[in-house]
C-alpha cells in the first residue's frame, strides 16, 4: 500500500528526479502535480477554481482603492488647508488604520447582523451582493495610503515652477491639474500601486478565510495546515510569478508617466 502511494506521488524516485520532474512539469506543461490531501483534485484544479475568485475581488478592490484614494488625495491637495482637506486626511488615516482583519468583523456585524442587507460571506457564483464586503474590507487600508501619497505628491507638484508657469499663461485650474499636474503626481503613486496589486491578491488570504469566498487564500492556508506541500508550493510559485510580472508592468508604466525615464 505504501509503495502504491509513493508511486502515485513519485516519491519512490530519487530526489533529483523528483525535483526534475516537478520543475519540468511546471515549466513545460504548467502542471503542479496532484494534491496530497484531496484524492480527486490536483493542484491545477485547486488553482483554477480559487484564483479567478481571488483575482475578481482582488482587482475590484485594487480599482476601488486606486480611484477613491487618488480622488480623495487630489481633492484634498487642491483644497489645501480647508475643511475638505482635513476631512480627507482624517478619512485617509482612519482607513489606513483599519486593516482587513478589523474591517471584516465590522462590516459583517453592521451589514449582515444589524442591517441584514448583505450576505455574510460566500461567493454564490460571484453575485454582486457577495462581493461588496470582501472588496471594501480589502481596499480600505490601501485606499488610505494612496490618498495620503497622492495628496502630498500633488501638493509638491502644485508648488513647482512649471505649474506656476502654466497658471501664469492663464490656463484654467482644471486644465492645469489634468494636463500638467496629474502625471508627475502619480509617479510615486504608481510605484506604490504595483506592490499593492500583489498585496490585494496575496493579502486576500484573510479575506478569503473570513468571508469563506472559496478563493485561493483558503486553499493556501488549508494546505499549510494539512501539510499539502504540492498545493502550498503551487500557490507560492503562482504568487511569486505574479509579483515579478506586476513589478515589470510598474517599471514599464514609469516610462509613460515620466518621459525622463528611458530603458
Amino acid at each position: 500500500m505504501l509503495a502504491n502511494i509513493e508511486a502515485r506521488y513519485g516519491l519512490d524516485q530519487p530526489l533529483w528526479k523528483q525535483l526534475w520532474d516537478y520543475m519540468s512539469n511546471i515549466i513545460l506543461h504548467f502542471d503542479f502535480g496532484p494534491s496530497f490531501k484531496f484524492k480527486d483534485r490536483d493542484v491545477n484544479d485547486i488553482i483554477a477554481q480559487g484564483f479567478p475568485i481571488s483575482l475578481t475581488y482582488g482587482s475590484l478592490a485594487f480599482v476601488v482603492a486606486t480611484l477613491v484614494g487618488v480622488g480623495l488625495g487630489v481633492w484634498a491637495a487642491i483644497r489645501h488647508n480647508t475643511f475638505i482637506d482635513y476631512f480627507a486626511v482624517t478619512l485617509g488615516i482612519a482607513a489606513q488604520a483599519l486593516p482587513n482583519f478589523i474591517m471584516g468583523p465590522i462590516l459583517i456585524l453592521t451589514f449582515t447582523l444589524w442591517l441584514g442587507i448583505l450576505p455574510g460571506g460566500g461567493w454564490n457564483g460571484g453575485q454582486w451582493q457577495y462581493l461588496i464586503m470582501p472588496v471594501i474590507a480589502l481596499s480600505t487600508s490601501y485606499m488610505g495610503n494612496i490618498a495620503r501619497l497622492t495628496r502630498s505628491s500633488m501638493l509638491e507638484v502644485l508648488n513647482s515652477n512649471f505649474i506656476r508657469t502654466a497658471r501664469a499663461k492663464g490656463l484654467p485650474m482644471r486644465a492645469v491639474i489634468w494636463r500638467h499636474a496629474m502625471k508627475p503626481t502619480l509617479l510615486p503613486v504608481v510605484s506604490y500601486l504595483g506592490p499593492v496589486f500583489v498585496y490585494v491578491l496575496t493579502g486576500s488570504v484573510f479575506v478569503d478565510l473570513y468571508f469563506s469566498t472559496g478563493g485561493l487564500g483558503q486553499a493556501y492556508v488549508g494546505s499549510a495546515l494539512t501539510r499539502d506541500y504540492a498545493v502550498l508550493l503551487g500557490v507560492t510559485i503562482l504568487y511569486g510569478v505574479l509579483t515579478v510580472f506586476v513589478n515589470l508592468l510598474t517599471d514599464l508604466a514609469y516610462a509613460w508617466f515620466d518621459p525622463k525615464i528611458r530603458y
Binding site: 459583517i108 456585524l109 449582515t112 447582523l113 441584514g116 450576505p119 455574510g120 460571506g121 460566500g122 478565510l209 473570513y210 468571508f211 469563506s212 472559496g214 483558503q218
Partner: peptide
C-alpha cells in the same frame, strides 16, 4: 453545506438568518 472557516462569523450568519 456552506464552508465558513471562522466559527464566530458562522454564528453571526446564523443569527442573520442565513
Amino acid at each position: 453545506a456552506l464552508v465558513i472557516n471562522d466559527e464566530n462569523v458562522a454564528l453571526t450568519r446564523y443569527l442573520a438568518g442565513e
